[in-house]
Write a protein that binds this DNA or RNA. Sequence first.
DNA 1: GCAAATCGTAATAGAATTAGTTACATAAAT
DNA 2: ATTTATGTAACTAATTCTATTACGATTTGC
Lengths: 143, 143
Amino acid sequence: MSASTRFCVAVHILAALALQRGKPVASEAIAASVGTNPAVVRRLLSDLARAGLTRSQLGKGGGAMLAKAPKKISLLEIYRAMDEPAIVAAPRSTPDQTCLVGRNVQPALRRVTDAAEAAFFDALAGANLKQIVKDIKADSIAA
Amino acid sequence: MSASTRFCVAVHILAALALQRGKPVASEAIAASVGTNPAVVRRLLSDLARAGLTRSQLGKGGGAMLAKAPKKISLLEIYRAMDEPAIVAAPRSTPDQTCLVGRNVQPALRRVTDAAEAAFFDALAGANLKQIVKDIKADSIAA
DNA sequence: GCAAATCGTAATAGAATTAGTTACATAAAT
DNA sequence: ATTTATGTAACTAATTCTATTACGATTTGC
């Protein structure tokens, strides 16, 4: 997929929020760090809020904050919040249903790819935002 | 993203070849089963041949054949042959390098996503074409 | 040798997805 | 009230993928 970059940006956003320890951060400030448009950030924050990971405050001094402790936010939750398409995409044209292979390949393959995707998700489930933040700080000390 | 459909189609192609047990299959026949254009199939076969999974024969009665036994072709080999992009794509705009988060999020995140992608690949490495073919036949008997 | 079949690949066009931009109504803070 | 900031919609631009067309090269079979 072309894979989407939303997940990476979402983690960036959440890490930035975590480092502010509850102080609201405006979408414009986040966008400056990410290097994109504030509206893009707000769109992602909208998804993250829907997933219960952030909340926002309007008005002067407002912005986004984490809705849960970094330790309680797994990378899988973040990934899921982005509504990414499946890793292994099914072909767009439907195969010939009168053909033995055409009829049965996709389901047979899916059994394997479902398991592989599950392994991917399990690994994401085993990491959380706090670890990412810790890593970020470690890098900054090392430099 | 979006993820690409090439892998699924490649498995379809290889399964079709496996079921012919060495008899050359023309790209047109494969394309009919997949439901796409022969040139698309030939392009994928070109990648598969480069990876050592198939070979082709020109002229009348020619076509593609497996270059290895189905049992010896893991789904990971097929996936790799497709040169798919990384599952987790890095953002296209570079983050602000003067910012602690901007400098360090991506490498910190990659440590986790690399492990997750490895888990995905391990699962694919554990399955082979013969299993897919067996599944296809089983489905046909059940129906 | 000749004709027919088939591949391999390039070039291009068409679709689909994704990110970026602009705009504006709404809500909160001072 | 004014200012600040969000949330979302509408649109544009960029990117990526698939499909199509075309054609030269190669092999088979007669």
